[in-house]
Amino acid sequence: MFNAPRYGTGSLADLLPSVLAGFGVPGETDRLGLGIAADRVCVLLIDGLGASALAANPGAAPFLSGLASATLTAGFPSTTATSLSSLGVGVPPGEHGIIGYLVRVPGQDRLINTLRWSPHGEGPRVDLRSELVPEQFQPTATVFERAAAHGITVTQVAPSYQNGSGLTRASLRGCAFRDSFSVGDLIDGIGIALRTGTRSLVYAYHADLDTTGHARGPASDAWLLELAHVDRLAAEIAERLPPDAALLVTADHGMVELDERIDFDHHSELRAGVQQLGGEPRARHVYTEPGAAQDVAAAWHEILGTDFAVLPRAEVIDRGWFGPIVAPHIADRIGDVVVAARTAHGIIRSGAEPIQSMMIGHHGSLTPAELDIPLCTFRS
C-alpha cells in the first residue's frame, strides 16, 4: 500500500516554515498548525525513526510516546538526502532538486551520491564541491538563511563530517555549525546553542538508529535498544531546555526489512536498454538508452509484477510524487523510468553496491512504514 506525501499541509518540508511563522518571520505560514510561539526552538531529527515503529514500541520509548504527537510524511523518495533537503529548504523535492540518493546530473555520464556529494562507483572518493557547486545545484534560500535574515540565531549541531559537506552547503546552509562528538556532546551543544542570542533556532541530527536499522533490521533487539537510547536522548534535551523553549522531535524516514532481493547485476532482462541505475533498492531511478524508456518500463513491469510500481517519468511527475511543482531542470534529473517497491522487496546491485545489498533495513518507497514520520512536541 502506498501513501501520498502531504506536501503543503503535513510533510517534513512544512515543518521549519511553520516554526518560522511562530517566530513571526514575514512571509512564513504555520502550514502544520503548530501554534508554537517561542523564542527558542530545537528541531531534533532522528534518522530512521518511522512513526509506525515508534507507535508499536511505547515501552522502549516512554518519553517520546508520552508527548503530544502528530504524523507527518517524508517526501519521495523517503531517503535521507532528499528529506534533509526538504526540511532545510522548506519545499518538496521537485523544487529543491535533491531527488534521490544516486542521481544522474544532466550533462554528466555518471551518478552522483547526493549524501556524500561524490561520484558513485569504484575508485577513490572524489570531492565534487568545486565541480558541482552545492549552492548552484540547489540555489533556493534555505529556511535557516531566511531565519538568520530576520535576526534569529541559527545553529546546526551535528557530526563533524556534515560541517561544510556538499549536502549541508546545498540544503542546510545558513547555520553556525557546532560539531557533536558524542551523545553527551550533542545534548550539551543543543543547550548552549539554544541559549545563544535573544531568539534561537537549533537543528540537531542523530544517526545511530538508522545505522542500527540498516545493519540489524528495524525489528531487531538491537534496534529496540537503540530506540531506548534515542528516547533518553530526547528526555535529556527536554530536561535542559531554557525557559520558554520548545523541542520538536521528528525523522527523515522509517524503514522496512527486505524479504526478497532482485539482483540487477545478475538479471540480464532488467539490464537491457538501461544506461545507469540510480536511487536505491526501494526506489530506483532507471536511466535508459535513448528511445528505450517505453520498452524498459514494459520489461520491468512484466518481470517485477505487482510488487513494484513501474512508471515513466512523466506519470510520476503527474502523480505529484516529487511535489506539485517540478522545475524542468530538475525533471531532467529524474529517471526515465521510476520504480518504487510496494511490498518488502528491493532491487539490489551485488556487484556495484555490495555493502548496500547486504543491509537488512531499507527505505525509499511510499509505504507507510517508510513514508510516515513522527512529530513529537515538548514545551519547557
Rank of each mutant, 00 (worst) to 15 (best):
R195S: 15
M1V: 13
C376R: 09
R146T: 03
G35L: 08
V256E: 01
G10Q: 04
A292C: 11
S118R: 10
P290R: 04
A238L: 00
T79Q: 15
M1R: 14
L67W: 07
G33Y: 10
G291H: 09
G88A: 12
T80K: 10
V89Q: 00
T82D: 10
A51K: 04
H267C: 08
P62N: 05
E353H: 14
L304R: 03
L304A: 05
G123H: 06
A272C: 08
G166P: 02
Y287C: 07
E131P: 05
A68M: 07
G323T: 14
S83D: 09
Y205L: 12
A234T: 06
D244G: 12
Q275P: 04
V326W: 01
V249F: 01
A193T: 06
R129F: 11
D47G: 07
G97Y: 04
V143T: 15
A55I: 02
T377N: 00
D30T: 13
P218S: 08
V25K: 11
H345S: 11
A344N: 13
A309V: 06
R40A: 13
G164W: 12
A21P: 06
A298C: 13
V337H: 02
A158N: 12
Q136G: 08
Y205K: 05
R261T: 02
L102I: 12
G10F: 07
H363F: 09
R110P: 00
G335L: 04
I46W: 00
S118V: 06
M358Q: 15
S180T: 14
R110S: 11
F23V: 05
W300V: 12
I36F: 00
E226P: 00
D109A: 14
P368H: 07
G123V: 03
A204Q: 08
V274I: 14
G35T: 10
R125V: 11
A204P: 02
V274L: 08
L64I: 01
F2C: 00
L115M: 15
H345K: 09
D109T: 12
A219E: 15
N163K: 10
D332C: 11
I303K: 09
A293Q: 06
F264M: 09
V339C: 07
R125E: 13
L233H: 07
R199W: 10
A55P: 02
R110V: 12
G59M: 01
V103K: 09
R261N: 02
Q138E: 10
R284S: 12
A207V: 13
S220W: 01
S165I: 02
T82N: 14
R199E: 11
V256W: 03
C42W: 01
L194I: 11
D307K: 07
V43I: 13
G346P: 10
G279S: 10
I152P: 06
R173Y: 08
P368I: 06
T196G: 11
P281L: 03
V154K: 05
A309Y: 01
G174M: 05
H229G: 07
G217K: 00
F137E: 08
G75C: 14
D30K: 09
R195F: 07
G66Q: 14
E315S: 12
R110L: 14
A141V: 04
T153H: 13
A297F: 03
A293E: 04
I317S: 01
P134L: 09
I112D: 05
E257K: 07
